[in-house]
């Protein structure tokens, strides 16, 4: 019985809700919501058409009439995944690449510059 109470107390301790003064967060509530949502989705899915046929022309890949490549060649490489994003922000990346020279002198230079900024803002102003 004592053990049972101890376990119950531990659970009470563990299951406290995190409050942030303006909101709260309890992962267990969230998890149960996810489980319920999954059950609803699953039940809706089970209403689906059961006469779907797997082995006919429907399932063939269609690439605007182009021939289909080997499966190995169809993988989109990592550097092409966010191509549009990196292309638009090319000017930012050019700037950043100029900053990351890989030269250790520049690293120390940034240290000196930051120290100077801190000195101006904290040492002189206040």
């Amino acid at each position: 019985m004592l053990l049972f109470i101890a376990i119950l107390d531990t659970f009470k301790l563990l299951l406290k809700t995190l409050s942030t003064n303006s909101g709260f967060w309890n992962p267990l509530v969230w998890c149960s919501v996810i489980v319920i949502a999954f059950l609803i989705v699953y039940s809706i899915r089970s209403f689906g058409n059961k006469e779907y046929k797997k082995d006919n022309e429907q399932v063939k890949t269609f690439l605007s009439g182009n021939p289909e490549y080997e499966k190995e060649q169809m993988h989109v490489k990592s550097s092409n995944v966010y191509w549009g994003f990196t292309e638009t922000l090319k000017w930012v990346y050019n700037l950043l690449n100029k900053m990351h020279t890989g030269n250790v002198s520049d690293y120390v230079l940034w240290f000196v510059v930051t120290m100077a900024i801190f000195f101006i803002l904290i040492g002189v102003m206040i």
Binding site: H100, T101, N103, S105
Partner: peptide, 8 residues
Amino acid sequence: DARKIGGN
């Protein structure tokens, strides 16, 4: 030369 060995 520090500029030659770093490099990205």
